[in-house]
Design a protein around this nucleic acid. Structure first.
Lengths: 345, 345
DNA sequence: CTGAAAGCGCTTACAG
DNA sequence: CTGAAAGCGCTTACAG
């Protein structure tokens, strides 16, 4: 009869509880709790009887109840943009490793670059009382988090800063990396350089654009508006942007791609292009060295970013109370060929 | 005084509860519950007072308590091998999308291909009473899960079958995909074909090897033991295996790479190799078409696998009681160049 | 060494 | 329309 399924609600109640184990073993509830948690003060004989009852009934402690009583969920939330973007793979893994070393599980979700969805996810995680939150924000206003943070929810932002609230943050050196990447192209003789970046509301896109402009300005060069195209990283948009810069009377001779999604499409476009065009991408990616020409990049270190963010988070959980801190992770220019192509003509 | 942090345990107790809201609004606890959950039967005036108290106190419902009472956690567990492997990105995303459409969150963890760690993770998720489990197993004995499944834990295995228990399973057509891939190389004139695959205890490695052997047998060709190398997919091991097959008096003229990790290293090795060697990989990967030669692959459909698995899981959660089912997802041979290279000599 | 009582913060089942 | 009581399955704080 224990199998009677009442639609979706059959599960609970069919599982044995500590009370059931106690009854079967002929001991008190607290004694079962002691055995289950390996606490001292139980005679070997009593322990054996309890263990037998546990096995016979197939008991497993219900951590939902434990969590309610103890006040810690031993889990942290990770909100990112897209689980399938290779940039977030190493970052997620690093966060998971740190969480694991602290005995915590990871609850994660994708915002799909939608601020409303980010907020929904973050607040759902708060309602579950995760111990802390690592957020790669999609939105630029996080005041909705202020009450949660005030109530003690430890929160660290990664890859992009928090908007309108003060919080621990781990960012790449987007400005410096972009400036160096563009300076590299300039050093190879380019004067007309295009920048295809992510949507302008995204902080990293703004910073990388700023780096682009700084490098151009430092070289005393003008920037034509038509050389800059910010927008979604969908292949169609990137293709169109590249065409607009390349198929004109005075084309750019080099492209700076604002992230790995853009770079990959740029490589495809340039493959079909009649003239050689130099390319430097922001973000490294797995086969960048195998494509011909191999792709020069300003590499980020997503694993380090994840590790740093999770480290900050657990410092907070361990009681650190210093003011919010901002950590900048350096980027590294890796020259492989595509960025050293001289200007055509 | 509410900010007095006692080390790590400060969080709970500092947050307002429904009881606090009730007291402040001058209503009963149940009325607050009604407002919070949008249940009918509250006058507009009462509702307004409750809402004001909620805002003033910064109340957010504690879902841990709700979960304990309701018996459903609205979360599912996903155990995979490595969050950073690009094969699992689309799979995870698909599982997440389905979970999201059912209002569930995803708790996930990596086994790092360690059976003990898989078990630890799975049982931790069971203890939290996730509503269901999607598992990409590392181990080959899942009897430890039998009591959980008997107690009602819905479980679906993906990519690899469950070991020694009966459960819903979603697998690629590993045998057929491998057979077709090798047949393709045979059709292009190859007779000595090497297979570099994953560790032999992994089901997909066994099946792909079986497909390799079947294709060779169907062509009436012998298989030399030295043409088969199963083991970890770490670059060093793959390099050594490839060298052993290529740098001999009678080298293989083509390689069949058992998964995307192997393929990527094989591409690097062949790049440095003096003679052209054909290559077909199992698994597609992002830049397979941009490498030169572009890589011919037996493509899996990880997004479809994830979607199918999550679909099966939620069918169970909705009460489906039919016997465990096994779904096979077809693979697709994509010819791009590397698999059409004729035998050297 | 052992266990009864209270309580974590909600929802359920009832009663008014 | 509203709320008091009981209970989800544990842990905490005590008492014996």
């Amino acid at each position: 009869m224990t199998h009677t399924a009442r639609g979706t609600s059959r599960r609970y109640g069919t599982r044995p509880t500590m009370k059931d184990v106690a009854a079967r073993a002929g001991v008190g509830l607290k004694t079962v709790s002691r055995v289950v948690n390996g606490e001292p003060g139980v005679t070997p004989d009593t322990e054996r009887r309890v263990q037998e009852a546990i096995t016979a009934l197939g008991f497993r402690r219900n951590d939902s109840a434990r969590i309610l009583r103890k006040g810690r969920t031993a889990s942290i939330g990770l909100v990112l943009e897209d689980l399938a973007d290779p940039f977030y793979g190493p970052l997620s893994r690093a966060v998971e490793e740190v969480a694991r070393s602290h005995g915590a599980l990871l609850i994660n979700g994708s915002s799909a670059e939608d601020p409303a969805r980010e907020q929904e996810l973050v607040l759902a995680l708060c309602a579950r009382r995760v111990d802390g939150l690592v957020v790669i924000p999609a939105g630029d206003d996080h005041r909705y988090l202020a009450p949660e943070i005030a109530a003690g929810m430890a929160t660290v932002f990664v890859d992009r800063p928090a908007g309108r609230i003060d919080a621990d943050t781990v960012l790449s050196d987007n400005f410096g990396g972009a400036r160096d990447a563009v300076a590299h192209l300039l050093a190879h003789g380019h004067r007309r350089i295009g920048f295809i970046g992510d949507q302008s509301r995204i902080h990293t896109a703004q910073e990388r654009l700023r780096g682009y402009r700084a490098a151009m300005a430092a070289a005393g060069l003008p920037v034509d508006d038509s050389w800059i195209a910010l927008g979604p990283t969908a292949p169609d948009r990137v293709r169109a942007a590249a065409s607009a810069m390349l198929d004109t009377p005075e084309p750019v001779t080099a492209l700076f791609a604002g992230n790995n999604r853009v770079t990959v499409t740029a490589v495809r476009v340039l493959r079909e292009h009649p003239r050689p065009v130099a390319l430097v991408g922001f973000d490294d990616f797995e086969l960048a060295d195998l494509v011909r020409p191999a792709i020069t990049v300003a590499a980020q270190d997503p694993a380090r970013m994840g590790r740093t963010a999770a480290g900050l988070l657990f410092r907070r959980l361990d009681g650190a109370t210093e003011p919010p801190r901002s950590v900048e992770v350096p980027t590294r220019l890796i020259t492989r060929g595509s960025g050293e192509i001289p200007p055509a003509l």
